[in-house]
Amino acid sequence: MSEALLRVSGLAISVAGDDGVAGILEHVDLAIPKGHIVGVVGESGCGKSTLVKAILGILPPRARVDAGTIVFDGRDLARLDEEAMQREIRGSAIGFIPQDPFLALNPVFRVGTQMLETMRWHAPPQWKGQHRQRLVQLLRAVQVPDPERALERYPHEFSGGQRQRLLIAAALSCQPRLLIADEPTTALDVTTQRQVLKLLRDLVAEFDLSMLFVTHDFGVVAQLCDSVSVIYAGQTVEAAPTRSLIDNPAHPYARLLLACHPDRAVDLAGIPGSVPSLIEPPSGCRFHPRCPIAVTACAVTRPPIVELAGAHAVACPRHELAFPGAGDA
């Protein structure tokens, strides 16, 4: 595997709230090799968004990084000061594609005005005077028809798919090396989604990018990602090349989750229990109260992530045990 552009190791983040301190992330590991698209999958509340915010350095004021590192291009973003984040990382070296193309553009300003504003803040100084021209080239790359005129139009004049293309162009506008996309296609129809996914794959190759793609849809992961990480309640439980994880999930949570997918689900049983409170999270492996093969040891210490064959890594020493409901053949 090539060298990782971004490597998150043992990241732990807690947020102080009114009801106590919530350990949103307990131990997250993630590596994005250069040129790869890595999917992060988990259910609501698992910490996906917190992970993204931590990488972008936009954690809420009450959040604290308790442990771990976020190494991007040799620098630890978890410890970089805000000024450097703002000047050198966010919006420039790391571009962000938001979830909802209908909310992310300001309806009262022309598209061009908004996109040029980003460039004014984050583009390298030697680009002075070329912003508009570069933007037009980018809009052409993301296949927005008639780019010159598109810049003069308002967001409502574009369809959902077109708006998502504009936002992708905005994320690319300052020559990032890493793109982070947070469920960028959930608001789109399947045919449009397919086209946007294709576009993202092409752009990653064309612009020599790497990408972190947050989603809850394993079908989208199958269409887009080279590898995928599964997070449960703030713990990375499994990471593997996409086909390997979807075809042979190892961690009991990943097995149960994939067994809930309508393409697989035999009896639509769901996963017993519910996602735990992060204020008083379960000890050890956070999945143990819901796990059909848990033993006492699982509640004592968090199992380390161990690499199996074929770059498939799992945080469960008992992953070889069969159990009913996991969709095992």
């Binding site: 449009t192 394993f218 199958a222």
Partner: peptide
């Protein structure tokens, strides 16, 4: 076209598909 675009667990990586537009 809908069936081909729809993400499935068995989906292959997005490749060349007829461009449908919107």
């Amino acid at each position: 076209a809908l069936l081909a675009a729809s993400p499935r667990l068995e989906s292959a990586m997005v490749g060349e598909i007829p461009v449908l537009g919107e």
